[in-house]
Computed example of a mutant assay.
Amino acid sequence: MARSIEGLLARVRHPTLKRMVTFWDEKRRGRDWPLRADFDPLEFWFAVGYVSLIEVISAPGSGARRYFFRLDGTRQVDLFGVDFTGKFLDQVADAEGTRVAEESYGAVVDQGEPQHHVRQVDFHDRPIQYEIAILPLSKTGEGVDMLMTVVTRDEES
């Protein structure tokens, strides 16, 4: 049975992020997480530029994972100054950024639960403060193998 996201929603500050988390929850339809096929960008037009889709690629037997950006939202590209689309996380982020993202992404994959963070980072020598929700998705319903991130500039900074 899918867990409640009330605590998550209570922490989310940005209205677009809150609306997208609610939309993700509706798409679960009582499941632990929605399928990737459940999402039509026309239905979440209000957040399209804030959303990235990240494929989780697990190495058989080793437990190692890499994160491949199928799509990086235009607002995320504007915020970070780099387009991750078509690249692995570790090809674009520095070692510390990769470590922080892999830790957060891994928690979502392992627990099957969304994560929320407000962070301030130095990315390519620029300070950036942002709010992020990391939402688990599945291609087949058998496990988390894709992530949807929704990132907004932190409005309270």
Rank of each mutant, 00 (worst) to 15 (best):
M1V: 14
M1F: 13
A2C: 13
R3G: 08
R3N: 09
S4C: 13
L8C: 07
L8M: 10
L9I: 10
A10L: 15
V12W: 01
V12F: 01
R13W: 02
R13I: 09
H14S: 10
H14D: 15
L17V: 01
K18F: 11
K18E: 11
M20V: 13
T22G: 00
T22F: 03
W24N: 04
R28G: 05
R29I: 04
G30H: 06
L35P: 03
L35H: 10
D38R: 04
D40R: 14
P41R: 07
P41F: 11
P41C: 10
L42H: 12
E43W: 11
W45L: 14
W45F: 11
W45N: 05
V48W: 00
V48G: 00
G49R: 02
S52C: 13
L53G: 02
E55T: 04
V56A: 06
V56W: 05
V56K: 06
I57H: 15
S58M: 15
S58Q: 15
A59S: 11
P60E: 06
P60M: 08
P60S: 04
G61L: 12
G61P: 07
G63S: 12
G63R: 11
A64V: 09
Y67G: 04
R70N: 14
R70G: 03
V77E: 13
V77M: 13
D78F: 08
D78V: 04
D78T: 08
F80Q: 02
D83K: 07
F84K: 07
T85Y: 01
T85D: 07
F88M: 09
V92T: 10
E96D: 07
T98G: 05
R99F: 10
R99S: 05
E102M: 14
E102T: 15
E103H: 11
G106R: 10
G106T: 12
D110M: 04
G112I: 06
E113A: 11
P114A: 10
Q115C: 06
H116P: 01
H116N: 03
H117P: 00
R119H: 09
Q120L: 13
Q120S: 12
F123Q: 01
H124F: 14
H124S: 09
D125C: 05
D125M: 13
R126K: 07
R126V: 09
P127E: 09
A133M: 03
A133S: 13
L135C: 00
L135V: 05
S138A: 03
S138I: 02
S138E: 03
S138K: 02
K139F: 08
G143L: 00
G143D: 02
V144W: 03
D145L: 07
M146G: 00
L147Y: 04
T149D: 04
V151R: 05
V151W: 04
T152Y: 00
T152V: 14
T152P: 00
D154A: 09
D154V: 02
E155K: 00
